[in-house]
């Protein structure tokens, strides 16, 4: 963690903010402040240099054009690669998850990714739209993943990354696994404000960023109710 305060960078909200992506920055900042940590949230637009010294970087979802443009600019900028080399946390969502990999497809063309995660994405036979749920990798010690997905991609994981979760509803990477993680880098197809439904995942990112083994618990009454309701809705849809 940088010395003064926890620094969270929201990468390119002008390109990669299709649907509520701001939520992840708001949720991380709030949960840190509730634990008494001073927080600074920086929104870095695509015509600005990316600071390489922040603690957490958020890469959100986007349409094909902005996704391809965002990847190009992040590669040219180099700031995210320097940050990762220094041990920063990166959380990628949907298009932002895909572009952390080796390659992805946008507008029918294969594009170079940031090559930070060993995975590649192509187009699936149909668009995956709906509730997404999964059992998270037990090594991360988190409760089940819940979210909403809306993407046309299929993602193939290489040996250097682990799946974030085993899919119990929805598609995720390929209908079997969902998301990926390695070190302090984590990506998911659970789009938009993914942390709203997964406060324990938010706390994992905060623990990674601060080095804390444990964080004081917070009142998560409303997110617990939301999680239970979504779990029931997924079960009812299956029955």
């Amino acid at each position: 963690m940088s010395t003064e305060s926890l620094r969270i960078v929201w990468i390119y909200p002008d390109l990669l903010s299709t649907y509520g992506d701001r939520g992840n920055a708001l949720i991380l900042a709030r949960r840190a402040r509730q634990r008494g940590m001073p927080v600074e949230v920086l929104e870095v637009r695509s015509d600005e240099r990316l600071p390489a010294t922040a603690d957490i970087y958020l890469v959100g979802g986007g349409e094909d054009g902005p996704q391809a443009l965002g990847a190009q600019r992040l590669i040219a900028d180099g700031g995210l690669h320097r940050a990762v080399a220094q041990g920063s946390v990166v959380f990628g969502v949907c298009a932002g998850y895909q572009l952390l990999g080796m390659s992805f497809f946008a507008k029918g063309v294969q594009c170079r990714g940031l090559e930070l995660l060993d995975l590649q994405s192509d187009r699936g036979p149909s668009r995956a739209v709906g509730e997404l749920a999964g059992e998270i990798d037990p090594r991360l010690g988190l409760p089940a993943l819940t979210g909403f997905e809306n993407h046309g991609g299929r993602t193939h994981l290489g040996p250097e990354v682990s799946p974030l979760a085993r899919v119990t509803a929805g598609v995720g990477n390929d209908g079997a696994t969902e998301g990926a993680w390695r070190g302090k880098l984590l990506g998911t197809y659970s789009h938009g404000p993914a942390l709203a439904r997964n406060p324990a995942l938010a706390d994992l990112l905060l623990r990674w960023a601060t080095g804390a083994h444990q964080l004081p618990p917070l009142d998560d009454t409303w997110s617990d109710r939301l999680r239970n309701e979504r779990r029931a809705a997924v079960a009812a849809a299956r029955a």
């Binding site: 649907y19 509520g20 992506d21 939520g23 709906g130 909403f148 404000p193």
Partner: peptide
């Protein structure tokens, strides 16, 4: 629309 993510916008 089935998705409520927009609430955070």
């Amino acid at each position: 629309g089935l998705d409520t993510s927009w609430l955070f916008d």
